[in-house]
Structures are given as C-alpha cells and as structure tokens.
Nucleic acid binder design. Structure first.
Length: 126
DNA sequence: AAGTTGACGGATG
DNA sequence: TCATCCGCCAACT
C-alpha cells in the first residue's frame, strides 16, 4: 500500500483519529491534528468536523478546544448536543461549562493515569 | 485560477 | 482570566 490518499480529502484521516477517542474521554483539536498527521494545523481539524454535517459514526462531540470548552455557536444547538453527549458519557463540566482536561484528556498511549500527563511546552525536537 | 475563510493553538498584553 | 494577533493549510467560492 503505497498511496493511501483518498480523494475524499485528507480530512478522512481526522475522522479516523476522532473515532479512536474512547468514551468518557475528550481530545483537543491540536491533539487530533497531530495524531492525524496534520501537525499543528488544528484549524483543519475543526473545519473537518464541521464538514461532516452529520455524525457519520464520528464522535465529533468528543473533540473540544484546548481550553476544554465547546466552541460551537448556539445556533443549531450543536453545542448543546455535544455537551449532552459528553455528560452522558461521564464527562463532567465545570460551572463555567469547561471540562477538566487534566482528568478527561485522552491519551493514545493508554495513559489513563491521573496525575501523569505530558508536560506542555515540550515541542517535538527536530 | 486566485483569494478568502475557518468547530484553533499559542503567546502576549 | 480574558482579549487580541499571528500562523498553518486545506476546502470553499
């Protein structure tokens, strides 16, 4: 398998990563972008999810911004749907509507261990 | 074909 | 904590 590019768009890769997010966990756009191989282009991730327009089996509701907050506009009530789904999966929201990423941030490394998370500021060395 | 946009991240003020 | 600016890159018009 050499060429893995689907003409559907590179976003399909994003969907694949989002699909890996387990229940009760959330991932940030930047995280998904990195896992999808988009680098730090988190914008494309958000745009990709928006392009979904429907679930398509992709738990887009498990993707939140780096602040652990939902960014969707109140229109359409998509943001409410997202929060409802997350709460249903066990994700707790702060009084301000924020998620404690410290406890709910998903790590593909199966690091579901509280207290141990990747320290921020450490970029990928060349 | 070219320009604009955008479910963002991160740094700075 | 919040507000504002810049940057990245593909999709969209």
């Amino acid at each position: 398998m050499s060429e893995g590019r689907q003409q559907q768009g590179r976003w399909d890769r994003v969907y694949g990563v989002v699909r890996r997010i387990p229940e009760g966990k959330v991932a940030t756009y930047g995280q998904v972008a990195e896992l999808a191989g988009l680098g730090r282009n988190a914008r494309q991730v958000g745009y990709a999810l928006h392009a979904l327009r429907s679930d398509r089996g992709v738990p887009w509701h498990r993707v939140v911004n780096a602040r652990g907050q939902i960014n969707l506009g109140p229109l359409g009530g998509a943001d409410v749907t997202q929060r409802l789904r997350l709460e249903r999966e066990g994700v707790k929201f702060n009084a301000r509507g924020r998620i404690d990423l410290k406890a709910f941030r998903w790590t593909p490394d199966s690091r579901g261990k509280p207290g141990s998370r990747t320290p921020r500021g450490s970029r990928t060395p060349p």
